[in-house]
Simulated scan of single mutants.
Amino acid sequence: MTQADSWSDREFSYGKADFDAARSLLYQLTGIRLADSKDSMVYSRLARRVRALKLTGFTQYLGYLNQHPAEEELFINALTTNLTSFFREPHHFDVLKEYLITHPQTRTIWCAASSTGEEPYSIAMVVAETFGRFDGPVKIIASDIDSQVLQKAQAGIYQLDRIKTLSAERCKQFFFKGKGAQAGLVKVVPELQKMIDFRQLNLLKPQWSVKGPIDVIFCRNVMIYFDRPTQLQILARMVQLLPADGLYIAGHSENFGHASHLVKPAGRTTYYPNLAAR
Rank of each mutant, 00 (worst) to 15 (best):
M1R: 11
M1E: 10
M1H: 08
D5Y: 11
W7M: 15
S13H: 14
D18T: 07
A21W: 07
A21N: 08
Y27K: 14
D36T: 12
D39P: 02
V42P: 02
Y43N: 04
R49Q: 15
K54L: 03
L55V: 09
G57F: 04
F58E: 00
T59Y: 02
Q60T: 11
Y61D: 01
G63V: 02
H68C: 08
H68Q: 15
H68T: 15
L74T: 11
N77V: 00
A78M: 03
T81E: 05
T84N: 05
R88P: 05
R88T: 08
P90A: 13
F93R: 05
V95C: 07
L100N: 01
T102V: 12
T102P: 00
H103V: 11
R107W: 04
S115F: 00
E118S: 10
Y121A: 04
A124R: 03
M125L: 13
V126L: 06
V127P: 01
F131M: 10
G132R: 13
G132E: 10
G136S: 11
I140Q: 00
I140W: 04
I141D: 00
A142R: 01
A142Q: 01
S143D: 04
I145D: 01
D146F: 02
S147A: 14
S147N: 11
Q148I: 07
V149Q: 03
L150R: 05
Q151Y: 03
K152Y: 04
A153G: 11
A153Y: 00
I157M: 13
L166H: 06
L166G: 02
R170C: 05
K172H: 14
K172S: 13
Q173T: 15
F174M: 07
F174S: 03
F176S: 12
K187Y: 01
K187M: 11
Q193A: 12
M195K: 07
D197Y: 00
F198A: 13
Q200G: 08
N202H: 12
L203A: 01
L204S: 08
Q207A: 11
S209W: 05
K211I: 05
I214G: 01
C219D: 03
C219T: 06
V222A: 01
M223R: 02
F226S: 03
F226V: 06
R228N: 08
L232N: 01
Q233W: 05
A236R: 14
A236N: 12
A244S: 13
D245Q: 15
D245G: 04
G251V: 06
E254T: 08
N255Y: 09
G257I: 10
G257F: 12
A259N: 08
A259W: 06
V263I: 05
K264F: 07
T270N: 03
T270Q: 01
Y271W: 08
Y272D: 05
A276N: 12
A276F: 08
A277C: 14
A277M: 10
A277D: 10
